[in-house]
Design a binder for these strands. Structure first.
Lengths: 203, 203
DNA sequence: GTCTATAAGAGGATAGAC
DNA sequence: GTCTATCCTCTTATAGAC
């Protein structure tokens, strides 16, 4: 833990404020519709100042994605430290965290297939490292849950992994919230149910 | 059935070619990343000619969405005409059609929450009519399937409806296809399974 | 590092000849 | 209705003063 000068602290604080704003705007409108002018205006600094912190719009978005990935990894580590939980419980817990984060407007959306953002992310060491660590950890839980008989063994682990990842951009949450007549927790419960138990009746 | 002049036929044929191209490009890159120049180039006409057929980029996309909605309604009508099928079978069939269509690159993506496209679609009578007819029909199937005991009764019908609609833009299909080692039908089967049976083991 | 001002370019839409 | 050429706005990014 290095001590930071006042200057360094304010620098970090500003970058944090920028990343928070970007995260929110990415969640609201996505990468293409988010403009750098808008980010600068909401943070309350000039656009040129933004570019002193981040060299491009893609880098801005990448920082937001990396930060969110870091939060996810924190959750994963916390869950891994609780031996009373089974693999399926851990998978459900991280999925629930993902849904709550999206509903809170703090989950930056995944990039479209062919965007410049996608290329920037693939080139970003931090992002790719985080993504791989996350995938490995969830993958281990998935295999364990399958061998526990708690998860459908007929599904390949990658299909399960992608299905859980996809909850981060599930439009169903937004649709149900737009209706306005349900609480966030109720919505999360329903989506958790469709995700793990499916639409069809059980039993 | 009115007879059409040669001029009218070529006009219609050209518009069909345009809409087909737009559908494919919308599926590939989405509304924001699709450019009108690109559409014109792929159809093989000048951009100004495009604007004689459709007054705006939004109208172009709306036409593609309306056409796709029409195809979905055709499927729905065909399924409704088969009395041997239960409501749950019909729901599964239309979901499977949706997945296949997306995998074939012919499902235009849903608009983001705050786009100009969304407003244009809401203002489009044809689109909204189709959407409502489709929702009503699927809604009836859902209620029926719940009363048959084939669909989870704890879920509100709208949650089921949105979950099925969302299969049209499920990124899991693309992820699995990008892996390259699975057939399209295999991928569809897995996603059908996660959608209706869930990730958790049954029994 | 922050600002104002501006370059550079993409992309939606249109003018006007044929 | 189709074309070429152009307009104009929006947006990313940078120059240069302080």
């Amino acid at each position: 833990m290095t001590r930071l000068s006042f200057r360094q602290k304010t620098h970090l604080a500003r970058e944090e404020a920028i990343v928070d704003t970007v995260k929110r705007l990415l969640a609201e409108k996505g990468f293409d519709l988010m403009t750098v002018d808008e980010v600068a205006a909401e943070v309350g600094i000039a656009k040129a100042s933004l570019y002193k912190h981040f060299p491009s719009k893609e880098a801005l978005a990448a920082a937001a994605m990396v930060q969110t990935m870091g939060l996810a990894l924190e959750q994963v580590r916390a869950l891994d430290a609780r031996p009373e939980l089974g693999a399926i419980d851990r998978l459900k817990a991280i999925t629930r965290w993902t849904l709550r984060t999206q509903l809170a407007g703090q989950m930056p959306t995944l990039p479209a297939e062919n965007s410049t953002l996608r290329n920037a992310l693939i080139a970003d060491r931090d992002y790719m490292d985080g993504l791989m660590t996350l995938s490995d950890q969830l993958g281990a839980w998935i295999v364990q849950a399958q061998s526990d008989g708690a998860l459908n063994r007929a599904l390949p682990p990658e299909a399960v992994l992608y299905t859980i990842f996809a909850r981060a951009c599930d439009p169903v949450l937004g649709f149900l919230k737009a209706g306005g007549s349900h609480s966030d927790e109720q919505i999360v419960d329903w989506v958790m149910s469709t995700c793990f138990d499916g639409l069809a009746a059980r039993g």
